[in-house]
Design a protein around this nucleic acid. Structure first.
Lengths: 358, 358
DNA sequence: GTCAAAATTTGAACCGATCCAACGAAAGTG
DNA sequence: CACTTTCGTTGGATCGGTTCAAATTTTGAC
């Protein structure tokens, strides 16, 4: 039976070994922090004492207070912690954040919670030098909490128009425009939109007017982008069905049941996320609707899964890696200058889009 | 231009607002920590002062020292930080660890580093109550460092026989036996093994004797399990080719080139990880070798990707979620009793295994 | 109006280190 | 040998809070 820890408690502090070795605590500290300035004989004596007493090295809790810097950045989300490991978009983003952190030697603390009370506490007590906030769903409470910590923070993919928070995002309108134009140029005329959530209201068919009032500006802007571009191709956007999903399989399938239940099914689907698009691909396959033969579909985000789906997904790729890199940079070299950065997006044409059926 | 932080520096401490509000710092502390015991009038006064001075709440750095508990667990690995988000096995494990943490309100700190010098420092200075150590590749240095911190720690999937470290693992021998027996019972007679790394030596064909000397006991035990079971079916294991991979596409493909380059290609492949098996599936598809028509393959780990591959992968599933849960529990309720737990594995039969061709 | 009980507030001690000005001893200089 | 450097060591101050026993104020009862 090897116990989890060597002893029962660990009341052995630097001061204890200093006393045991017969030196001042200042010298004992130096033995660990700057060994080269301590005479060898003394150094060995202190080290021996530390060894003998089972001292685990200077406790970072103590050092921290003095040093001020934690050397770690917190990544916060309103979702459960496992979101970081489950969601494709989050994973790519986290991978790039972690690379940036590795490069600078900074650590990462995941901050989240099952309930919002806990979340507030976790943010208030996170030992970090700053926050990167994932507020995918316009969770302004999260931004508010981060702001209250008075630490540097950057919002990622911010679904809010609040100009006072530092944020790194993309031009949703332009990106959506790219997707719409691509399909319009292929001569599609009958469209449908699978939307991201507008509010916390669940899923179901919705209207342009309702999306305009959406809580989440990302959803709203993507729709604006789609419709502005479609209009310029003389498509009557008031006839384009919009189905609000909650970005999961169930709501996407319900949306497609609804959309393809009508008399004139679309030949082109604009999906506001790759996740939606990938679920849609599954539904279409199960209903023997050929992609892109019968229906074309364009996603949004550019997650890696889109490259290996069947068929590979045409999508609007966000510069996810670059966003992560910039976010880390903004926190670590916080010069207080960053406000809002809008990064360009890219249309990645793969095999899920083609001309409409003849 | 919204600056990243409100002011330049933040020299405003609890003591400052206490003075401003004309109360003792003890009372000021109570206002934040136990508001209910402070008279309302005073409470409001202090809060107002805090607000006015831009106080961001009690600094956790200070509290920490007194409280002792960080309320976060560190997850350490020798791989780069992005491993947590890239590797399928790590992701599932992390998802279950994070669920367990969410349930108890604990945070997660990712501890890793690009180089090993940095890693040592990061472990020494991690602000955590304990470590969960991913030492997938027998990195005993990692265990050593964790041990030196004198904090509770648990090794996951430990590739080492060191009986003195607390660890949660699986019975590799039994698990491998399950895989081998499954294929043998389907009447396969010609096998090949795609192995995990034995040492840091790269990849290539290897032998049973070499694997027996492997640095990594996981690799060794899985081979032992395979061969023990195959032998009991009167299969001459000395004729079974073993190819050591590094768990990536390139080495797996090289292994298959090698294995299928021979005169009598196998009808059954034992892959020591799902990742290997999934890469193998790709190779087999590209070479028009039917699975399981021409060749059956069984993986190891039970990652979710295996369930949706083409064909779905038969595999030996580790109870990943349970392992994560137990690891967190072991750290948080550290009663010093855990030593080594070997959890049972499950054979999950899906469509990548069937009878050999007639 | 007096006194004990209850409710608040205070201030010193402490958490575990690092930092730094000052000091003593050894080494170097003229 | 007196005097300046250099090297190592010391111990007090500090980081930013929390805690608790003691002091003080309020409240309630008679």
């Amino acid at each position: 039976m090897a116990p989890l820890t060597s002893g029962k408690t660990r009341p052995v502090r630097l001061a204890d070994i200093a006393k045991a070795a017969g030196v001042s605590h200042g010298t004992a500290s130096n033995v660990f922090a700057r060994p080269e300035i301590v005479r060898e004989e003394v150094r060995e004596r202190v080290k021996a004492a530390a060894e003998a007493m089972g001292y685990g090295g200077p406790d970072p809790k103590g050092r921290l207070l003095r040093a001020g810097k934690v050397n770690a950045i917190g990544v916060a989300t309103g979702e459960p912690l496992s979101y970081f490991f489950d969601d494709p978009f989050a994973r790519v983003m986290m991978a790039s954040i972690s690379q940036a952190c590795d490069a600078t030697g900074a650590g990462i603390s995941l901050v989240s919670a099952a309930n919002s009370e806990q979340l507030a506490w976790n943010i208030q007590s996170a030992l970090v030098d700053g926050f990167i906030v994932f507020c995918m769903e316009g969770d302004s409470r999260l931004v508010q909490l981060a702001r209250e910590r008075k630490l540097p923070f950057v919002a990622l993919d911010l679904d809010s128009d609040d100009q006072t928070v530092a944020a790194i995002g993309i031009d949703n309108i332009a990106g959506a425009g790219l997707a719409a134009r691509h399909l319009a140029e292929l001569r599609h005329r009958r469209f449908a939109v699978l939307a991201l959530p507008c509010a916390d209201a669940g899923f179901g068919p919705t209207t342009q007017a309702q999306v305009e009032m959406a809580l989440y500006s990302g959803t709203r802007d993507r729709l604006r982008g789609y419709f502005a571009e479609l209009s310029s191709f003389d498509i009557d956007v008031s006839l384009v069905p919009i189905y609000e999903t909650v970005n999961d399989e169930k709501s996407v399938w319900a949306g497609l049941d609804h959309i393809f239940g009508g008399a004139e099914p679309p030949t082109a689907i604009l999906a506001m996320s790759d996740r939606i698009a990938l679920h849609a691909l599954d539904w279409l396959r199960q209903h023997d609707i050929a992609v892109p033969g019968d229906v074309s579909i364009v996603g949004f985000d550019g997650v890696p899964e889109g490259a290996i789906s069947e068929p590979p997904l045409t999508t609007v790729a966000q510069p996810i890696a670059e966003m992560g890199r910039r976010a880390v940079k903004a926190i670590l070299e916080n010069d207080g200058s960053l406000s809002r950065q809008l990064l360009p997006v890219d249309l990645v044409v793969r095999a899920s889009s083609g001309p409409p059926p003849a």
